[in-house]
């Protein structure tokens, strides 16, 4: 996803909606814009900064502070494996391993086709479903390593058919 075509019309609609809030609209504006663009490129961030009247450098400082905002391209599907205490106690390591094997990448990396990004994540707050896995907005848990290929296969299908 290094090359991207941005739906500027939708982006501008979001910016126009948050502009009256000024800087207090920055976080929700970035979140909503990223839902459209996948990540926050300099071009996109510049547009948000101008619309909300926030200094460029400050927008970058904000983006890099929050782990759900991306200043670099990421996959269309983000696989977040909780690897915190309760998930570890229930076998999250096996789930991380299954994801690495299936995707052929390490946590923090994106597959060459730009489809998947893998992340190990601090506690996702679903400890009663440990070990827990989140793929974009979908929740899976308790999940075992052997469930991973089936889950990610389905996501591949879903992205291809979109």
């Amino acid at each position: 996803m290094t090359e991207m075509t941005v739906d500027w019309q939708r982006v501008d609609e979001v910016i126009a909606r948050w502009a009256p809030k000024g800087r207090a609209g920055l976080l929700p504006c970035l979140e909503e814009v990223q839902e459209i663009t996948g990540w926050l490129s300099p071009e996109v961030s510049r547009r948000v900064a101008a619309g909300l009247k926030v200094p460029l450098a400050d927008v970058f400082g904000v983006i890099t502070f929050y782990s759900l905002l991306y200043e670099r391209p990421v996959g269309r599907v983000i696989v977040r494996v909780c690897d915190d205490v309760s998930c570890f106690v229930n076998g999250s390591r096996e789930v991380v391993q299954a994801c690495r094997t299936y995707l052929g990448i390490e946590p923090g990396e994106t597959t060459p086709d730009g489809m998947f990004t893998l992340e190990t994540h601090p506690c996702l707050g679903r400890c009663e479903r440990a070990p827990f896995l989140m793929v974009n907005d979908e929740e899976y848990g308790p999940v075992r390593g052997e469930d991973v290929p089936r889950i990610l296969d389905a996501w591949k299908e879903r992205v291809r058919s979109e």
């Binding site: 200094p55 460029l56 450098a57 400050d58 970058f60 400082g61 890099t64 502070f65 782990s67």
Partner: peptide, 9 residues
Amino acid sequence: TYALTVSGR
């Protein structure tokens, strides 16, 4: 001038 920020965490 706002050329600088702190980035990262």
